[in-house]
Simulated scan of single mutants.
Amino acid sequence: MTTRTLIPPARLARPRGRALYRTAFALVAGGFTLVFLGPLYWIFSGGLKSAQEAVRTPPTLVPQTFQPENYAQAWNVMDLSGLLLNTLYYAFGALAFQLVLDVAAAYSLSRLRPVLGKAVLGMMLATLMIPATVLVVPQYLTVLDVPVFERNLLNTPWAIWLPSVANAFNIFLLKRFFDSIPGELLDAAAIDGAPPLRVLWSIVLPISRPILGVVSIFAVVGVWKDFLWPMLTLPDPAKQTLNVGIYSLSSGVPANVLTAALAVASLPTLILFLLFQRNIMSGLTAGGLKG
Rank of each mutant, 00 (worst) to 15 (best):
M1K: 10
T5A: 13
T5P: 03
R14K: 14
R18M: 12
A24R: 10
F25S: 14
G31Y: 10
F32T: 09
V35K: 07
L40V: 14
F44P: 06
S50K: 06
V55L: 12
R56N: 15
P59Y: 07
P59A: 09
L61M: 14
Q67R: 11
P68C: 11
N70P: 03
N76L: 13
Y89S: 14
F97K: 02
A105G: 03
A119T: 14
V120W: 12
T127L: 05
M129A: 14
L135D: 00
P138E: 04
V143M: 08
L144N: 15
D145G: 12
P147D: 04
E150V: 10
E150P: 00
E150T: 13
R151S: 11
N155C: 03
N155E: 05
W158F: 13
I160W: 07
I160G: 12
I160N: 11
F169L: 10
N170V: 04
F172R: 01
A188H: 04
P195G: 14
S216V: 05
S216T: 09
F218N: 04
D236P: 07
P237E: 09
K239S: 12
L242C: 05
L242D: 04
S250N: 10
V257D: 06
A265V: 11
S266R: 00
L274D: 09
F276I: 02
N279E: 15
G291L: 09
